[in-house]
């Protein structure tokens, strides 16, 4: 088990300079999640236009490098995508976190760097926190549309 597998430089980079870390008052997707075990918390915002495209995505929150980097990469990965494509990304990400190899990883971009987390089971919760929020947001969006 090598620490470098967990703390890849891409992850540290997203942690140091998080992308899209800001508030969006869009009336769109806006879901808060926290991890009661470690106090990490994340709010994911997504603006969805009339054609079902995520025109903007951002997050706010605080926590460990894994939870923050995962949220930062999430926002980059879903911007400009349609909601059903985003659902596919969520699925692929969860598969990767479950340790399943397979196609779909190339769609994950930088997120592949989080693959090392699988070897640290207690940290998987950190990596999926933002994704839980996003998934909850998508199901709320779908109910409303």
């Amino acid at each position: 088990m090598s620490l470098d597998d967990l703390y890849r430089e891409v992850i540290l980079d997203h942690y140091r300079s998080p992308r899209n870390k800001r508030h969006i008052d869009s009336g769109g997707i806006d879901v808060h999640r926290n991890n009661p075990l470690c106090g990490d918390d994340i709010t994911v915002y997504v603006v969805v236009d009339a054609t079902g495209v995520a025109t903007d995505a951002a997050f706010e929150g605080q926590g460990c490098s894994i939870s923050q980097a995962s949220a930062s990469m999430l926002t980059e990965q879903i911007r400009g995508k349609k909601v059903d494509e985003i659902e596919g990304i969520v699925l692929n990400f969860r598969k990767m976190m479950a340790g399943e190899e397979g196609p779909g990883e190339e769609e994950l971009g930088d997120l592949v760097a989080l693959k090392g987390v699988v070897k640290y089971p207690v940290r998987i919760k950190c990596a999926v926190l933002a994704w839980d929020a996003l998934q909850e947001g998508i199901s709320q969006y779908e109910k409303a549309h």
């Binding site: 620490l3 490098s65 940290r123």
Partner: peptide, 12 residues
């Protein structure tokens, strides 16, 4: 360093 990262690293 967030405590969670720290605990993981010292665990190794």
């Amino acid at each position: 360093l967030h405590p969670h990262d720290l605990a993981t690293i010292v665990d190794t």
